[in-house]
Design a protein around this nucleic acid. Sequence first.
DNA 1: GGTAGTGGGACATAATATGTCTATGATGGA
DNA 2: TCCATCATAGACATATTATGTCCCACTACC
Lengths: 340, 340
Amino acid sequence: MQSIIDLQKRLLPDLLQVLHKRYSILRSIGYMQPVGRRSLAASLGLTERVLRSEVDFLKDQNLLTINNVGMSLTSEGKNLLEDLECLMRKLKGIDVLELELKHQLGIKKVVIVPGDSDLSPMVKSDLGKACANWMKNLLSGENIIAVTGGSTMAAVAEGLTPEYGQKELLFVPARGGIGEDVHNQANTICSIMAQNTLSKYRVFYVPDQVSTEIYESLIKDPGIHEILNLINSASIVLHGIGDAITMAKRRKTSPEVMELLKMDHAVGEAFGYYFNEAGDIVHKVTTIGMQLEDLKKIPNIIAVAGGASKAKAIKAYMKQAPAETVLITDEGVAKQLTSY
Amino acid sequence: MQSIIDLQKRLLPDLLQVLHKRYSILRSIGYMQPVGRRSLAASLGLTERVLRSEVDFLKDQNLLTINNVGMSLTSEGKNLLEDLECLMRKLKGIDVLELELKHQLGIKKVVIVPGDSDLSPMVKSDLGKACANWMKNLLSGENIIAVTGGSTMAAVAEGLTPEYGQKELLFVPARGGIGEDVHNQANTICSIMAQNTLSKYRVFYVPDQVSTEIYESLIKDPGIHEILNLINSASIVLHGIGDAITMAKRRKTSPEVMELLKMDHAVGEAFGYYFNEAGDIVHKVTTIGMQLEDLKKIPNIIAVAGGASKAKAIKAYMKQAPAETVLITDEGVAKQLTSY
DNA sequence: GGTAGTGGGACATAATATGTCTATGATGGA
DNA sequence: TCCATCATAGACATATTATGTCCCACTACC
């Protein structure tokens, strides 16, 4: 006996396509509201007229309203959208994908968000929300949360709300400066996270490449020492995973190191560590803070990364990731990895 | 959280229509296969071209095959159809209808078959199958099955297969001749049932209206007596229910009796008994065999009747039917009765 | 006051759905 | 063996709907 969904897939594939189209429209409006027809059409890859027909329909169903500033969801539309999320997951078989990927990567749990972050910024934002949501279940009385940088982590920060701050939270950067733009630095992200949750945070300014001498003296600094202690007693680590070359470029890595990375076929990056496809560390940014071996001692590890282009990187990193890791990713990655 | 279907209905209002259309097509092909497009279109009330589009679609889905003798379901199509039956029942709320009707009529169980026997002969055939199916659960080592006449019972006979004959079955007419055409006489039906199940049967030829004298002498006949014993020890009774006037006409009832029936507002008929809307017996065909009061002693009673036109008759008969009765009927009747 | 966004109207054209008819072949009964 | 019947597939004109592409008036914000 097949499920209703399976039956429908068989008997109404054409209608399900329409369902998906309408769902996408609702979802996008939900994000971008109030939004005009033209920009929405561009963002969805539909022509204006097609979108218009659909929008007219949805308006008739009282799912959205149209006024001179653009289209918005009605409360009915919002409710429907929420319920639809669940349905679409089933329809797309996302629940199944999650299990498959979890087994393939050999980690504790995989959460997949519909869509592809490479193609739509909305999805990256969803990724952030999904991560925040998962984190919610892990919060107890006091929580020290170690965070890395990157645009994905920035999305996570945006997904946090004051609601989370009802528990006591302290955000600390997981590692010293590893040379991202200020915008996506761990320090900045920690501060945003703290701000969004009305919690505390620590910063961790460490020059990028330090001589061994300075390194030794830094470690002895009481302030730094305290932060290192905090990091190692973190209950949760949130980190991103990046494509090796992309990350290296973004960090303005020296041409020599760049050569090295290419020669060693580095594909993935996380925490300032670079990995080849087999999951071996081929290079690391020397800085103080959490080291890869420290990660194993952290009870909760959440890796967040999406976009089909990151599939290889994720796969590489997960080769050696702690089995406790929870991966928050998107459909783009999942499809890429399970199709092999 | 709404049900999947409710959600979908919001975004695809014509979903159910399309689903139902495709389901009907599959179902009809299932019955009539191999069948041509034109006759199928006529039977479904669709134009040829519309049907053709749908059929092309279903063919692409590998649910049916087309060759020069007509269209047939593939095994995949058959499986899907079976699953669909169940889904459509839920969608139409047939399960709910069954319960409602059961309570309303105050009987043990109601089984409802989708459709209306008045409108489609397929449904009558389904009725027969449903009855046979229910009966299957009642068969034990040895079974004496008392049967009445009527076209519905003939459909039941057609629904029986040799599989049923694995248990020991003996079919006997429930009552003596009550004047139907040979075709739909209890005797004939018993013989067909026995034939289809590879079992035994008895016939029971009794003149229609006998004088008390002859009646007395018949009762003393050992052969007749044996059959009467069999009838009264039956483990299962299968009977139809008819519209009073229709049945009376079919039996070429005398004008006087006809008048009587009309005066007494007879609406229902079963076993040769005529009932008014209150369930009172207003007339009976005098013959030997099972009497209405004998019915109460039979452990399993299955009434089979469908078609919206029989709704009143069924309601009337059920007013006084044993609570043990199981009614096998169709959607046409059920809708008619529950809408009051 | 100008710019960039908005919705809605209009309309020619493309695409699809539909009704209807024909050609042709297979099948089964006389 | 032939003929009536039923089958599919092709064809095609027409009705209906979907689509792409404008334009216009309006408004919010700079």
